[in-house]
């Protein structure tokens, strides 16, 4: 984890889900983070043109630009491709996991998200 506090971007069309995710990160890691929020992949990419983030947490099923397309666009960008991505979705199946693995995403949390699930994933990423 970055030494001076991390900035985490949460990409989800549900404001409730974004709120729960922020709460879980706080409980799981006991740290103060700066959160950026985006309502879909397109909105997130627009914000990432101007701002730097340390971690992206994204939903899959979103209007305008879904999570899979968003992650693909991140991986195609020289500027963004090294940002770690955690996928958080209510859908979990082998095909989706395989697609995400091809995009270099190994960290998958199935909703409902909890501090325990977030903690486990962040431990793998070395943030805990």
């Amino acid at each position: 984890m970055p030494e001076n506090g991390a900035t985490i971007m949460i990409v989800d069309d549900s404001s409730t889900s974004r709120m729960i995710t922020k709460r879980c990160f706080g409980f799981a890691l006991g740290e103060q983070f700066t959160f950026m929020e985006a309502t879909d992949g397109a909105n997130a990419l627009s914000q990432l043109q101007d701002d730097v983030v340390d971690l992206i947490v994204t939903d899959i099923n979103m209007p305008k630009m879904d999570g899979t397309t968003f992650v693909w666009k991140i991986r195609m960008s020289d500027q963004l491709k090294r940002i770690p991505v955690v996928v958080l979705s209510s859908m979990k199946n082998d095909a989706l996991k395989a697609t995400l693995r091809e995009l270099g995403v190994e960290q998958f949390v199935q909703k409902p998200v909890s501090p325990v699930k977030v903690g486990e994933v962040m431990e793998v990423l070395g943030w805990r």
Partner: peptide, 20 residues
């Protein structure tokens, strides 16, 4: 949304591609 995703997995398992 969460209920729907979880239900798809519970009904058909992770081997089936589920679309919500």
């Amino acid at each position: 949304n969460v209920l729907g995703g979880t239900l798809g997995r519970a009904l058909w398992g992770e081997a089936v591609r589920c679309k919500l």
